[in-house]
């Protein structure tokens, strides 16, 4: 049981040590700073495209959306255009809500707020899965966007806007960016859920813990560099711009912690295509959500539809003709 999360934890720790020691001890900056990131990005891009193409190459023989509301039917019956869409527009809204608000996950919690017998408002613990998931994904996105400042020169205005709002509480120096801490908090929550909720821990695999530990590791090293060890930002930017412009340089004065951070990010990127983290691509292609429920209106074509043997009426009548005639049922051939 324990090994399901102890092994991934140890693994992530070793990855950290490998990079840290590799840089501080063996001076392998070029390897962890240049070779690995390029390889990881390549693996990510190639793997991601390969996986998505793999899905796209599989046929969609039938139109089988999960319908979650009233169908389009008689004109006076009110259709639920989003949960049971019959048009592309409806499907689009459904997908947007699904992708940006995790609507199906929220359904989990719809009945979660209830009044009990004593009319006291109760809620189910499940709401935190939805909240935790939202916090996790959005803070991840924000952190990712903020980091673009290291790869772009000049820094685009939209990224500055993101930064402005992320640091809006104006506390500390350097100003505290909420997203980093939110990401760490949400990841820890999702991890705790996997360890302490017997139901979820029972269904979890080692492969579910690994990315969580990895992301926690990335967040912790990032936070450490920003607020505690105060990494040399100019050096980092020189380094990242070097990567982005394909003229990689190894700056002076940037330590092992930074390379460990970069290394873990690289591992995460390379890990995405071979893991469940591909769900970010899969959600767009999921046939139960991205199709309109209009099969009775418009014929859907199955690319591999093939003819099958059927028991024809003629065979049927041949078999039962006498009995049918006796019972007064009409027949095609009267022999």
């Amino acid at each position: 049981m324990k090994q399901k999360y102890m092994l991934p934890l140890t693994g992530v720790f070793l990855l950290f040590l490998l990079a840290y020691a590799g840089v501080e001890g063996a001076g392998m900056q070029w390897f962890f700073g240049i070779v690995v990131p390029y390889a990881a990005v390549l693996a990510f891009l190639a793997g991601f495209v390969y996986r998505v193409m793999g899905w796209a190459s599989s046929a969609v023989p039938f139109r089988i959306p999960t319908t979650c509301g009233q169908q389009k039917s008689l004109p006076w019956i009110k259709q639920n255009r989003i949960d049971n869409p019959d048009t592309t527009a409806g499907v689009f809204v459904r997908m947007v809500l699904e992708i940006f608000l995790f609507r199906s996950l929220f359904r989990n919690t719809k009945a979660a707020f209830n009044r009990n017998e004593k009319n006291k408002l109760t809620y189910s613990w499940e709401i935190f899965l939805w909240l935790g998931a939202l916090a996790f994904h959005y803070s991840f996105l924000t952190v990712l966007l903020r980091h673009l400042r290291f790869f772009l020169n000049p820094v685009p205005a939209c990224i500055k806007v993101v930064e402005y709002f992320d640091g809006i509480i104006q506390v500390g120096l350097p100003i505290v960016m909420l997203s980093g801490f939110l990401l760490l908090g949400a990841a820890l929550f999702l991890l705790a859920r996997r360890i302490f909720d017997e139901k979820v821990s029972y269904i979890s695999l080692a492969a579910d813990y690994f990315p969580l530990f990895l992301i926690i590791g990335i967040a912790v090293t990032g936070i450490f560099m920003r607020y505690f060890t105060k990494v040399d930002i100019l050096g980092v930017k020189t380094f990242t711009m070097g990567l982005a412009t394909f003229h990689p340089v190894i700056p002076e004065g940037v330590g092992g912690l930074f390379y460990a951070h970069i290394f873990m990010v690289s591992i995460l990127f390379a890990y995405i295509p071979v893991s469940k983290l591909m769900h970010m691509g899969g959600i767009f292609l999921s046939p139960t959500r991205n199709m309109a429920n209009n099969t009775r209106m418009k014929r859907h074509i199955n690319p591999w539809n093939y003819d099958v043997d059927i028991h024809t009426y003629e065979q049927y009548e041949d078999h039962f003709r006498d009995k049918m005639i006796d019972a007064g049922l009409p027949v095609d051939k009267k022999e």
Binding site: S58, N108, K276, T288
Partner: peptide, 23 residues
Amino acid sequence: RLEKFRTFKIFMDVCVRCGACAD
């Protein structure tokens, strides 16, 4: 079936085991 049904292939790949379906 992985080639014939995109549903099958995607459903094999993308589950994150969040547990929302369990109960």
